[in-house]
Simulated scan of single mutants.
Amino acid sequence: MPRKPNTELRRQQIVDGLLRVMATQGYAGATVQAIAKAAGLAPGLIHYHFHDKREILVALVERLAGYATQRYQSRAAEAIDARQRLVAYIDARLSYGSDADPDAVAAWVMVGAEAVRDPDVREVYQRTVAQEMLLLRKLLRACLAEQGRKVRKLDHLAAGLLAFVEGVFALASNAREIVPVGFAADMAATWVDRYIAGEPAVAGKDRR
């Protein structure tokens, strides 16, 4: 495997440095000097690769989002219908596997916690959540249509499933020993299946 360019490696080091500082001092305490120290780099290199710490935060969130997208796409590639694509999403977010990364989950929980306190973090966090909602609405709408069910309160269902995922992330990061191992993906799929089954059927002439 070819080595990554030095610039890419440096940027990864800096993003990792931000993550480590946020874990102990929060985003407010993540000064350029603190990030540089955590990354093992000179402060001047931070400014060379990033304009400011908000740009580093964006890179961190993009990396976490890219990891989630890769997990989903690898599973969705084998899906043959709308329900399997929805289950691929649920598995990508909640199941274990060789590509599972608990550190990425913990990092996302950390970003969400900082979003409560810091408007810069909140803006980046909300933008990512909005993209997640778009994907969920698309998957759920297709699943409802495939099963001949009316699409009602789609935003509510998408938000409910996303809230479940976010809650599981928090539990997995902060109380892993308390909750049953591997419960989340099966429970989420069962919950969504029951919700869809409970929705009114579309009249024959209205089915698409």
Rank of each mutant, 00 (worst) to 15 (best):
L162Q: 13
A88E: 08
K150L: 10
K53C: 09
R93T: 00
L18W: 09
K150V: 06
R75W: 10
G182L: 03
Q131I: 03
V111Q: 11
E62R: 11
M133V: 11
L64M: 04
Y96R: 09
E146Y: 10
L64R: 03
A115G: 04
G66F: 03
A68S: 13
A77W: 00
H47E: 00
K37R: 15
M110S: 13
H156I: 01
H51A: 12
G17Y: 01
R83N: 06
V87K: 06
R122Q: 03
V105T: 15
R54A: 06
Q84R: 13
I196Q: 08
A39C: 10
A30C: 11
T69P: 01
T7C: 08
G97I: 00
A38V: 10
S74P: 08
D101L: 04
V109C: 14
Q12I: 02
V165N: 01
R149C: 02
M110F: 08
E55K: 13
D120H: 15
M22S: 04
R71V: 09
L64D: 01
I56P: 14
R208V: 15
Q126T: 01
Y195G: 09
L94N: 04
A100H: 11
M133N: 05
A172Y: 04
H49C: 08
F169H: 14
K153F: 00
R71N: 11
R71G: 09
Q147E: 13
A130N: 04
M1P: 13
M187S: 14
D193S: 15
Q126L: 04
D52Q: 02
H51N: 07
V165P: 11
H49E: 12
S98L: 05
R11D: 01
R75I: 10
L41F: 12
M110H: 10
G112T: 00
T128E: 02
G97P: 04
A92G: 13
A113T: 07
P5L: 06
L41W: 13
Q147W: 02
L161S: 07
L136I: 00
A189L: 07
R71Y: 09
E166K: 12
Y48G: 00
H51M: 05
V121Y: 11
A82M: 07
L139H: 03
D206V: 11
F169T: 02
A39R: 10
A170E: 08
V192G: 12
Q25S: 15
A28M: 12
G29T: 09
R11N: 03
Q25V: 07
A88C: 06
A30L: 15
P2Y: 09
A107I: 03
A130Q: 03
R85D: 12
A201E: 14
K53W: 11
A34W: 14
A107L: 05
G44P: 12
A59L: 03
A76Q: 12
A39L: 11
K53F: 08
E166P: 05
M1R: 10
L171G: 03
Y96K: 09
Q131E: 00
R137L: 04
E55V: 10
V116K: 07
I178P: 03
R117C: 08
A185R: 13
A42R: 14
D186K: 09
V179G: 10
H47L: 03
D52M: 05
A175S: 09
K4R: 15
